[in-house]
Structures are given as structure tokens and as C-alpha cells.
Simulated scan of single mutants.
Amino acid sequence: MSLQEDLLNDMKAAMKNKDKEKVAVIRMARAAIKDAAINERKDLSDDEVIEVLSKLVKQSKESLEGFEKAERPEQVEELKREIEILEGYLPEQLSDSELEDVVDETIAEVGAQDMSDMGQVMGAIMPKIKGKADGSEVNQLVREKLQ
């Protein structure tokens, strides 16, 4: 079963259970997926759907920081629940040690020596970890390793 079918089935179940919050989050995700499909002019694969969901999670986390700074506890809790629901459809995230292993392995594969090889390393590593780690975390870790 595809990820889009999972979303549809979960939305139907949430409607039956009268879980308005989950229905709203899944509808938002399905709308973003539909927009991406229209922009690409094709049906999206599961990998592409994961990419869309990852962007939604990233946007929500950025909004969460803003609401925390503004001391808006209702919105903070709402966004935390939204992130939790969306992350349920993403692949399991890599632990810090697993991510570090992948970074070390990729640096060795590419033969990177310093910061001038940063683009090569990032280009090689991102397809390996797509949806399994935040790109900014990976970028920071690669920078630390190449300095």
C-alpha cells in the first residue's frame, strides 16, 4: 500500500473516530501532496511524498520555535501534535551515531579532505538519508568533520 493510500485510510478512520485534529493535519498533508503533484504534472512516488511531508514537518518546527519565543502555549501544543502526526508517516529517523557513521563513510567514499569538498559530500550523502535525517543537521555534521 502506498503512503498516499495510508493517509487516505487514516483520514477516514480519524473521521469515524471524530479526531478533528488528525483529520485536519492529514487533509493539510494531502493538499500539499496534491499541490506538488500538480506542479510536477505527475503522480508522486512514495519518496516524493516523503519529501513533501518532510518539508511540512520542517515548516512546523520553524513555526514552533516562533510560537515558543512568543510564549503562545496553545499553538505550541497544537504544532507539537501536528509534527507528531506527520512524523508518523516518515521513515524512522537516524540516531546521532548512525548519522555520524553515514557521514564518515560518505566522506571516505568521496575522498573529501576539506571544506572545498563540502558540495561533493552533501551531494553523495543526501540520497542515502532522504527523509531519515534533517538536512541542516547533516550539513552541520559534515562541516565539523571537514574542518
Rank of each mutant, 00 (worst) to 15 (best):
M1R: 05
M1T: 02
L3E: 04
Q4R: 09
E5A: 13
E5I: 14
E5L: 13
D6M: 10
D6N: 13
L7Y: 05
L8M: 10
L8T: 03
N9R: 14
M11K: 05
M11G: 04
M11Y: 03
K12A: 13
A13K: 11
M15L: 11
K16Q: 14
K16F: 11
N17Q: 11
K18W: 07
D19T: 01
K20P: 02
K22V: 07
K22M: 08
V23K: 05
A24H: 06
A29C: 13
A29S: 12
A29R: 01
R30H: 10
A31K: 02
D35G: 05
A36C: 11
N39P: 04
N39K: 14
N39Q: 13
E40Q: 06
E40S: 07
R41C: 14
K42I: 14
D43G: 12
L44E: 00
D46N: 10
D46R: 03
D47G: 07
E48A: 01
E51M: 04
E51R: 08
E51F: 06
V52T: 05
L53T: 00
L53D: 02
L53C: 05
S54V: 09
K55Y: 06
K55M: 10
L56H: 08
L56D: 09
K58Y: 08
K58V: 03
Q59E: 15
K61W: 03
K61S: 09
S63P: 03
S63D: 09
L64T: 10
E65M: 12
G66T: 08
F67G: 03
F67W: 12
E68K: 14
A70M: 15
A70R: 15
E71V: 12
E71N: 11
E71L: 08
E74V: 12
E74D: 14
E74P: 06
E74K: 10
E74T: 02
Q75D: 15
E77K: 10
E77L: 10
E78P: 14
E78N: 15
E78T: 15
K80Y: 10
R81F: 11
R81T: 12
E82Y: 07
I83Y: 06
E84D: 11
L86H: 08
G88Y: 07
G88I: 11
G88D: 09
G88T: 10
G88F: 09
Y89I: 15
Y89Q: 13
L90A: 13
Q93P: 07
S95Y: 10
D96F: 01
S97I: 13
S97P: 11
S97F: 07
S97G: 10
E100P: 01
D101W: 00
D101Q: 06
D101N: 01
V102Y: 05
V102L: 04
I107G: 06
A108Y: 00
A112Y: 04
M115C: 00
M115A: 07
M115Q: 05
S116W: 09
S116L: 14
D117F: 01
D117A: 00
M118Y: 10
M118C: 03
M118V: 01
G119F: 14
M122V: 04
G123F: 09
A124Q: 12
A124K: 00
A124V: 06
M126Y: 04
P127T: 07
I129F: 08
I129Q: 03
K130G: 06
K130R: 07
G131H: 04
G131S: 03
K132I: 01
A133L: 01
E137I: 05
V138H: 04
V138R: 02
Q140S: 01
V142Y: 02
V142P: 03
R143G: 08
L146E: 06
Q147M: 13
